[in-house]
Computed example of a mutant assay.
Amino acid sequence: MKVALVAESFLPHTNGVTHSLLRVLDHLAARGDEAVIIAPEAPGAPDAVAGAPVVHVPAVGWPGYRDVRVALSSVRGVTRLLEAHAPDVVHLASPFMLGWAAVRAAADAGLPTVAIYQTDVPSYAAAYRAPWGEPLLWARVRAIHSAADVTLAPSTAAMSQLEDMGVERLRLWPRGVDTTRFSPAHRDDALRARWAPRGEVVVGYVGRLANEKRVGDLARIARLPGVRLVVIGEGPELARLRRLMPSAEFAGFLGGGELARAVASLDVMVHPGELETFGQSVQEALASGVPVIAPRRGGPIDLIDHGSNGFLYEPGRLDRMEAAVAMLVEDTDLRLIQGAHARISVEGRTWPRVCEALVDHYESAIAARATSGTTTGTATR
């Protein structure tokens, strides 16, 4: 089949959306399918990935996020692109701005659409002190996914969220994990000795350093005796977090083998963000044999089996987050047992299996459109 992947963000900007798209592109190439990526223009953006051309549309930078690009393409412009490439199905990756134009363009062209819900953009409004914007943002999200032939949600919590908003034609599509790249085998004793020269237990965070990730909650962990906090990632909150947690190790952005070694070298991971629709860094830590502690909200609920491969705490209850970390710091046997269970819990979540399920969803959307001969959703101009 021929797939047009409309990406709200893409290379060179790396995030969960980009990572998922790269795995999908690899899978489509391995199957012999044809793909084209439509993405916002950005300095240093590639012209092709995994044999698929990248078509860039006009975009501007987002204030405070130098690398984040917001597409400005019109419905007519995206319609022309879709007509030129004539795909069998349109994949909308975390649609919001470009995705809103694309879902309407696909409707104009009579093309089936599969929308991937991946980012809880509306809830960011409250995190950034603009709660008045949340209903407006949800209206956009609801309109996009109601217009799509199929919406794929990454977790049961995300499905419930969308159902409550009135979105129909929902399917569950979790993310995969590379269990070869993320593995306990990559644990690096030399790196651990540099991080924790006095033999401290290494507790880490992996992700973007942004307000909605609540990384500042980890200040309580940084003060625990016998703990060395390691923060892996970059973002606009870096300077504030350095001041808040001067004893922490800030490793910066890591990728490839460096990231795999760093994650496997943690003893415990804490992911304090409460707006995760899935939690890919949680899954990568589990694959690395690292128990994870996270709020009982969103995607981590599906990934963390409380007491087996980590702990869940009630959102906002930082005392319980701290208590869970302290328990694993003090009880080496429990930490090792949970680490072993962590690895086992994700061994079946491989990207090839997950991507083959995605192809099944593509085929269902194509078949449904062929059967009906009409637009399944309702796109509002």
Rank of each mutant, 00 (worst) to 15 (best):
L11P: 00
H13E: 09
N15I: 03
T18L: 10
L22K: 04
V24Y: 14
L25I: 02
A29E: 13
A45G: 15
W62L: 14
Y65E: 11
D67N: 06
V68Q: 11
A71N: 07
D88P: 10
D88F: 12
H91L: 14
L92T: 00
F96D: 03
W100F: 13
W100R: 15
A106H: 05
D108K: 15
G110N: 06
A130G: 02
A143E: 13
H145T: 07
A148Q: 08
T151I: 08
T156K: 14
T156H: 15
S160E: 14
L191E: 00
Y205F: 14
R223W: 00
G226F: 05
G226P: 06
V230M: 04
A239L: 10
R243V: 01
E249S: 10
G252P: 06
R261A: 08
M269I: 13
E274R: 14
F278H: 03
V282M: 05
V282A: 03
Q283E: 14
N309F: 02
F311W: 13
E314F: 12
G316F: 12
R320T: 01
E322C: 01
M327E: 15
L328F: 02
I337R: 15
G339I: 07
I344S: 15
S345P: 14
D360L: 13
A365N: 06
R369M: 00
